[in-house]
Protein backbone atom coordinates (compact mmCIF):
# COMPACT_ATOMS: atom_id res chain seq x y z
CA UNK A 1 0.00 0.00 0.00
CA UNK A 2 2.78 2.42 0.95
CA UNK A 3 4.65 1.70 -2.31
CA UNK A 4 1.49 2.39 -4.27
CA UNK A 5 0.96 5.72 -2.50
CA UNK A 6 4.60 6.68 -3.01
CA UNK A 7 4.38 5.97 -6.73
CA UNK A 8 1.15 7.98 -6.99
CA UNK A 9 2.82 10.94 -5.32
CA UNK A 10 5.99 10.60 -7.38
CA UNK A 11 4.18 10.29 -10.68
CA UNK A 12 1.82 13.13 -9.83
CA UNK A 13 -1.29 10.96 -10.01
CA UNK A 14 -2.29 12.73 -6.82
CA UNK A 15 -1.11 16.04 -5.37
CA UNK A 16 -1.79 15.05 -1.80
CA UNK A 17 -2.64 11.83 -0.02
CA UNK A 18 -4.82 11.87 3.07
CA UNK A 19 -4.10 9.18 5.60
CA UNK A 20 -3.12 8.87 9.23
CA UNK A 21 0.19 9.27 11.00
CA UNK A 22 1.05 8.87 14.66
CA UNK A 23 1.99 12.08 16.42
CA UNK A 24 2.83 11.63 20.12
CA UNK A 25 1.06 8.25 19.99
CA UNK A 26 -2.12 9.84 18.68
CA UNK A 27 -3.08 8.73 15.18
CA UNK A 28 -4.13 11.95 13.46
CA UNK A 29 -5.10 12.71 9.88
CA UNK A 30 -2.01 13.53 7.88
CA UNK A 31 -1.59 15.05 4.48
CA UNK A 32 1.24 13.29 2.62
CA UNK A 33 2.89 15.17 -0.23
CA UNK A 34 5.64 14.62 -2.77
CA UNK A 35 7.97 17.06 -0.94
CA UNK A 36 7.99 14.92 2.19
CA UNK A 37 7.56 11.53 0.58
CA UNK A 38 9.56 9.73 3.28
CA UNK A 39 6.68 10.38 5.68
CA UNK A 40 4.62 7.79 3.80
CA UNK A 41 6.65 5.13 5.67
CA UNK A 42 4.90 6.28 8.87
CA UNK A 43 1.40 5.91 7.41
CA UNK A 44 -0.94 4.02 9.70
CA UNK A 45 -4.48 2.76 9.32
CA UNK A 46 -5.80 4.18 12.53
CA UNK A 47 -8.69 2.70 14.45
CA UNK A 48 -9.73 6.28 15.26
CA UNK A 49 -11.81 7.59 12.41
CA UNK A 50 -11.78 11.16 11.23
CA UNK A 51 -13.70 12.54 8.34
CA UNK A 52 -10.91 12.64 5.76
CA UNK A 53 -13.36 13.48 3.00
CA UNK A 54 -14.36 16.64 4.86
CA UNK A 55 -10.72 17.76 4.87
CA UNK A 56 -10.65 16.90 1.17
CA UNK A 57 -13.65 19.15 0.48
CA UNK A 58 -11.96 21.98 2.36
CA UNK A 59 -8.86 21.56 0.18
CA UNK A 60 -10.94 21.35 -2.97
CA UNK A 61 -12.67 24.58 -1.94
CA UNK A 62 -9.25 26.27 -1.90
CA UNK A 63 -7.99 24.67 -5.07
CA UNK A 64 -10.73 23.12 -7.24
CA UNK A 65 -8.22 21.33 -9.49
CA UNK A 66 -6.35 19.51 -6.74
CA UNK A 67 -6.10 15.75 -7.07
CA UNK A 68 -6.54 13.94 -3.79
CA UNK A 69 -5.66 10.43 -2.74
CA UNK A 70 -7.42 9.09 0.30
CA UNK A 71 -7.41 6.18 2.66
CA UNK A 72 -11.03 5.08 2.60
CA UNK A 73 -13.16 2.75 4.64
CA UNK A 74 -16.68 1.82 3.54
CA UNK A 75 -18.14 4.84 5.32
CA UNK A 76 -15.60 7.16 3.66
CA UNK A 77 -16.56 5.74 0.28
CA UNK A 78 -20.25 6.29 0.93
CA UNK A 79 -19.53 9.85 2.04
CA UNK A 80 -17.49 10.44 -1.12
CA UNK A 81 -20.41 9.21 -3.20
CA UNK A 82 -22.75 11.67 -1.52
CA UNK A 83 -20.23 14.50 -1.97
CA UNK A 84 -19.99 13.66 -5.71
CA UNK A 85 -23.78 13.72 -5.98
CA UNK A 86 -23.82 17.16 -4.32
CA UNK A 87 -20.96 18.48 -6.47
CA UNK A 88 -18.63 19.09 -3.55
CA UNK A 89 -15.93 16.89 -5.08
CA UNK A 90 -15.48 15.45 -8.54
CA UNK A 91 -15.03 11.68 -8.86
CA UNK A 92 -12.13 12.17 -11.27
CA UNK A 93 -10.15 14.17 -8.73
CA UNK A 94 -10.25 11.54 -5.98
CA UNK A 95 -8.39 8.24 -5.83
CA UNK A 96 -8.90 5.94 -2.87
CA UNK A 97 -6.97 3.18 -1.17
CA UNK A 98 -9.37 0.80 0.50
CA UNK A 99 -8.89 0.25 4.21
CA UNK A 100 -10.25 -2.51 6.33
CA UNK A 101 -13.64 -1.82 7.80
CA UNK A 102 -16.42 -3.58 9.68
CA UNK A 103 -15.68 -7.19 10.66
CA UNK A 104 -17.16 -10.06 8.73
CA UNK A 105 -16.36 -13.73 8.29
CA UNK A 106 -14.26 -12.70 5.30
CA UNK A 107 -12.43 -9.92 7.14
CA UNK A 108 -11.49 -10.96 10.65
CA UNK A 109 -9.54 -7.87 11.46
CA UNK A 110 -11.18 -4.48 11.40
CA UNK A 111 -9.76 -1.00 11.95
CA UNK A 112 -12.58 1.13 13.21
CA UNK A 113 -13.27 2.94 16.46
CA UNK A 114 -17.00 2.38 16.21
CA UNK A 115 -16.56 -1.32 16.84
CA UNK A 116 -16.00 -0.81 20.53
CA UNK A 117 -19.14 0.98 21.66
CA UNK A 118 -19.31 2.54 25.10
CA UNK A 119 -21.39 0.92 27.80
CA UNK A 120 -24.96 2.04 28.31
CA UNK A 121 -26.16 2.49 31.88
CA UNK A 122 -29.29 0.98 33.40
CA UNK A 123 -31.11 4.34 33.71
CA UNK A 124 -30.61 5.20 30.06
CA UNK A 125 -31.84 1.75 29.11
CA UNK A 126 -34.93 2.17 31.28
CA UNK A 127 -36.02 5.69 30.27
CA UNK A 128 -33.95 6.56 27.21
CA UNK A 129 -32.77 4.74 24.14
CA UNK A 130 -29.91 2.28 24.14
CA UNK A 131 -27.57 3.49 21.39
CA UNK A 132 -26.87 -0.09 20.33
CA UNK A 133 -30.46 -1.07 19.65
CA UNK A 134 -31.58 -1.83 16.15
CA UNK A 135 -33.95 0.63 14.51
CA UNK A 136 -36.77 -1.93 14.51
CA UNK A 137 -36.54 -2.23 18.30
CA UNK A 138 -36.82 1.55 18.68
CA UNK A 139 -39.78 1.77 16.31
CA UNK A 140 -41.48 -1.00 18.28
CA UNK A 141 -41.76 1.25 21.36
CA UNK A 142 -45.00 2.70 19.99
CA UNK A 143 -45.99 6.38 19.82
CA UNK A 144 -46.22 7.31 23.49
CA UNK A 145 -43.29 5.38 24.89
CA UNK A 146 -41.22 6.25 21.86
CA UNK A 147 -41.98 9.93 22.36
CA UNK A 148 -40.97 9.80 26.02
CA UNK A 149 -37.77 7.97 25.30
CA UNK A 150 -36.75 10.24 22.41
CA UNK A 151 -37.58 13.36 24.40
CA UNK A 152 -35.48 12.10 27.31
CA UNK A 153 -32.56 11.81 24.90
CA UNK A 154 -33.17 15.19 23.23
CA UNK A 155 -33.52 17.15 26.50
CA UNK A 156 -29.92 16.23 27.36
CA UNK A 157 -28.68 18.19 24.35
CA UNK A 158 -26.09 20.88 25.18
CA UNK A 159 -26.33 22.36 21.69
CA UNK A 160 -22.65 21.93 20.92
CA UNK A 161 -23.35 21.55 17.19
CA UNK A 162 -20.82 18.71 17.24
CA UNK A 163 -23.13 16.45 15.22
CA UNK A 164 -23.25 19.02 12.44
CA UNK A 165 -19.62 20.06 12.63
CA UNK A 166 -18.19 16.57 12.40
CA UNK A 167 -20.61 15.37 9.72
CA UNK A 168 -18.75 14.51 6.51
CA UNK A 169 -21.77 15.37 4.35
CA UNK A 170 -22.65 18.67 6.07
CA UNK A 171 -21.12 21.29 3.83
CA UNK A 172 -23.72 24.07 3.51
CA UNK A 173 -22.40 27.58 3.95
CA UNK A 174 -25.65 28.62 5.54
CA UNK A 175 -27.17 26.23 8.03
CA UNK A 176 -30.75 26.24 9.30
CA UNK A 177 -29.39 25.46 12.76
CA UNK A 178 -27.40 28.72 12.65
CA UNK A 179 -30.34 30.80 11.51
CA UNK A 180 -31.36 33.36 14.14
CA UNK A 181 -35.04 33.18 13.25
CA UNK A 182 -35.17 29.40 13.36
CA UNK A 183 -32.85 28.53 16.25
CA UNK A 184 -32.18 31.37 18.64
CA UNK A 185 -28.82 31.79 20.27
CA UNK A 186 -28.65 31.84 24.02
CA UNK A 187 -31.08 29.58 25.85
CA UNK A 188 -29.38 26.31 26.51
CA UNK A 189 -32.09 23.76 25.99
CA UNK A 190 -32.75 24.22 22.29
CA UNK A 191 -36.25 23.93 20.93
CA UNK A 192 -36.70 20.16 21.29
CA UNK A 193 -37.43 18.14 19.26
CA UNK A 194 -37.37 20.73 16.46
CA UNK A 195 -33.62 21.29 16.72
CA UNK A 196 -32.90 17.60 16.22
CA UNK A 197 -35.65 16.99 13.70
CA UNK A 198 -34.54 19.88 11.47
CA UNK A 199 -31.16 18.25 11.26
CA UNK A 200 -32.75 14.83 10.81
CA UNK A 201 -34.87 16.06 7.90
CA UNK A 202 -31.78 17.47 6.20
CA UNK A 203 -30.04 14.16 6.67
CA UNK A 204 -32.65 12.24 4.69
CA UNK A 205 -30.98 11.00 1.53
CA UNK A 206 -27.66 12.35 2.78
CA UNK A 207 -26.67 10.53 5.97
CA UNK A 208 -24.21 7.77 5.19
CA UNK A 209 -24.56 6.11 8.60
CA UNK A 210 -20.93 6.52 9.59
CA UNK A 211 -21.80 7.16 13.24
CA UNK A 212 -19.35 10.04 13.66
CA UNK A 213 -22.14 12.30 15.00
CA UNK A 214 -22.95 9.83 17.73
CA UNK A 215 -19.23 9.43 18.46
CA UNK A 216 -18.92 13.19 18.84
CA UNK A 217 -22.07 13.73 20.91
CA UNK A 218 -21.06 14.58 24.48
CA UNK A 219 -24.50 13.54 25.70
CA UNK A 220 -24.67 10.20 23.84
CA UNK A 221 -27.91 10.99 22.05
CA UNK A 222 -28.65 8.06 19.70
CA UNK A 223 -28.37 10.25 16.59
CA UNK A 224 -27.36 7.38 14.38
CA UNK A 225 -30.71 5.69 15.00
CA UNK A 226 -32.57 8.92 14.24
CA UNK A 227 -30.81 9.37 10.92
CA UNK A 228 -31.22 5.67 10.13
CA UNK A 229 -34.93 6.29 10.52
CA UNK A 230 -35.00 9.17 8.01
CA UNK A 231 -32.94 7.17 5.56
CA UNK A 232 -35.25 4.20 6.02
CA UNK A 233 -38.20 6.45 5.12
CA UNK A 234 -36.33 7.73 2.06
CA UNK A 235 -35.69 4.13 1.05
CA UNK A 236 -39.21 2.88 1.71
CA UNK A 237 -41.01 5.81 0.07
CA UNK A 238 -38.64 6.68 -2.75
CA UNK A 239 -36.40 3.63 -3.09
CA UNK A 240 -33.38 5.88 -2.60
CA UNK A 241 -30.24 4.25 -1.20
CA UNK A 242 -27.98 6.91 0.25
CA UNK A 243 -24.28 6.54 -0.40
CA UNK A 244 -24.59 4.05 -3.24
CA UNK A 245 -26.99 5.88 -5.52
CA UNK A 246 -25.50 8.24 -8.06
CA UNK A 247 -28.72 10.24 -8.35
CA UNK A 248 -29.77 13.33 -6.46
CA UNK A 249 -31.87 12.55 -3.37
CA UNK A 250 -35.64 12.51 -3.92
CA UNK A 251 -36.16 15.84 -2.15
CA UNK A 252 -33.99 17.83 -4.51
CA UNK A 253 -35.69 16.84 -7.74
CA UNK A 254 -38.54 18.95 -8.99
CA UNK A 255 -41.11 17.71 -11.44
CA UNK A 256 -40.37 14.08 -10.78
CA UNK A 257 -43.40 11.81 -11.26
CA UNK A 258 -44.60 10.38 -7.96
CA UNK A 259 -47.24 7.81 -7.17
CA UNK A 260 -47.92 9.05 -3.65
CA UNK A 261 -51.41 10.15 -2.71
CA UNK A 262 -52.46 12.51 0.11
CA UNK A 263 -53.62 10.48 3.08
CA UNK A 264 -57.28 10.85 4.14
CA UNK A 265 -58.07 12.25 7.59
CA UNK A 266 -58.30 9.22 9.84
CA UNK A 267 -60.79 9.19 12.73
CA UNK A 268 -59.14 9.43 16.13
CA UNK A 269 -58.21 6.00 17.37
CA UNK A 270 -58.75 6.82 21.02
CA UNK A 271 -55.64 5.30 22.58
CA UNK A 272 -53.43 7.99 21.07
CA UNK A 273 -53.55 11.35 22.81
Amino acid sequence: MKEQIKSWLEQGTVDVFLGYREVDHHPIPWCFTQEAIEEVDDLVVSPARYSLEKIATHMAAEDPDIRIGMLARDCNNRALNVLYVWNQLRPEQVVTVEANCCPSPLKEHADCSYLEPGTVGAYKKAVGIDNHLRLEAVEAYGPEEGRNRWMYEFQKCIKCYGCRNICPVCFCRECSLDHDDLVGTGPLLPDIPIFHLVRAVHMAGRCIDCGLCEDACPMDIPLRLLYQKVNRIAMDLFDYRTGTSGDQPPFSILGDRVTLEPKPIQPVTGAEA
Partner: peptide, 27 residues
Protein backbone atom coordinates in the same frame (compact mmCIF):
# COMPACT_ATOMS: atom_id res chain seq x y z
CA UNK B 1 -42.43 17.82 -4.35
CA UNK B 2 -44.87 18.87 -1.63
CA UNK B 3 -46.34 15.43 -1.36
CA UNK B 4 -42.91 13.89 -1.06
CA UNK B 5 -42.01 16.16 1.80
CA UNK B 6 -45.35 15.88 3.60
CA UNK B 7 -45.41 12.09 3.32
CA UNK B 8 -41.84 12.03 4.61
CA UNK B 9 -42.75 14.34 7.49
CA UNK B 10 -45.76 12.21 8.43
CA UNK B 11 -43.55 9.13 8.55
CA UNK B 12 -40.93 10.91 10.66
CA UNK B 13 -43.48 12.31 13.10
CA UNK B 14 -44.77 8.76 13.47
CA UNK B 15 -41.70 8.23 15.65
CA UNK B 16 -43.35 10.54 18.20
CA UNK B 17 -46.95 9.53 17.50
CA UNK B 18 -47.75 12.88 15.90
CA UNK B 19 -48.22 11.81 12.29
CA UNK B 20 -51.96 12.51 12.36
CA UNK B 21 -51.39 16.18 13.08
CA UNK B 22 -50.13 16.85 9.56
CA UNK B 23 -52.53 16.77 6.66
CA UNK B 24 -52.22 17.52 2.99
CA UNK B 25 -55.08 18.07 0.57
CA UNK B 26 -55.18 19.48 -2.95
CA UNK B 27 -57.80 22.23 -3.15
Amino acid sequence: MTIKRITFLQELLGLFGLQERVHLAWI
